[in-house]
Amino acid sequence: MDGIGLEVPQGAVYGFLGPNGSGKTTTIRMLLGLVRPTAGAAWLLGEPMPDAAPQVLPRVGALVEGPAFQPYLSGRANLVRLDAHDVTSDPRTLRRRADDALERVGLAAAAAKPYRQYSLGMKQRLGLAAALLRPRDLLVLDEPTNGLDPQGTREVRHLVRELADTGATVLLSSHLLAEIEQVCTHVGIMSRGRLLVQGPRDELAAADGVEIVVTVPADQLAAAAGVVARSGLGDVQVVDGRVRARSDTVGPSSGDAALEVPPGRVSAALVHAGLDLLGFEVRRPTLEQVFVQLTGEGFDVAR
């Protein structure tokens, strides 16, 4: 674990990615003061942890490594029990806060059931409800959609967006790239105890350049390749009856403006050359490609 500065702007949804064993959960544990770093310090919301835990943690809602509650207490009683340990919470508003939290995660109907009768998805929802028991500045959600059905996953995504809209900052750790891609505004990728890259999601995806794929009738392939090459794109290849070329960006910033060669100019050149343009596609790398490129294809758990 080395020099991890997660920059999570206020109101952002930060996707925290990394292969299994890369240190995501350990980082979260340190941030929450559950584990002391062997050397160095952890800072959360600008405060040192775990020393400032009494001041910082009431502002932080956390779901760490799956939900865990007292099995013999009802969902509601579990929330009440957690709140009873909070020296700063107001017991007079507890009933309303608990009802609201249960309502938000769609657990109101099962609130009186013992926790051990909950399905995995319901347990996960109760974990979210506990994190929402009071207004928070930061939500740390470790794999919040684990075990949820597609409907539940959608609801959680929706909830996360909604929370971010109300000004809360969300740190979302997940191995589901699609999920991160859909909800997160910022992404950090971790591997072997190091933070490899972080930044706004769009910048990360654009940093790797775009690929332009041109489809023309087979007899015009060579001509099209020539036009594309002349327009300034590099690495022009004819593969599977299509012309592929790369347009590398100048520095990590988003948008077509940063491309050396705007794709629009390429398409115009092709048309101008009198070619029958059947397809013109600008491919940006998915988060998955960025992720695999950074962390490797290997299947081994990182040490």
Partner: peptide
């Protein structure tokens, strides 16, 4: 862990 992040001393 959930009690400790509530937080309770």
């Amino acid at each position: 862990r959930y009690l400790l992040v509530v937080p309770v001393g």
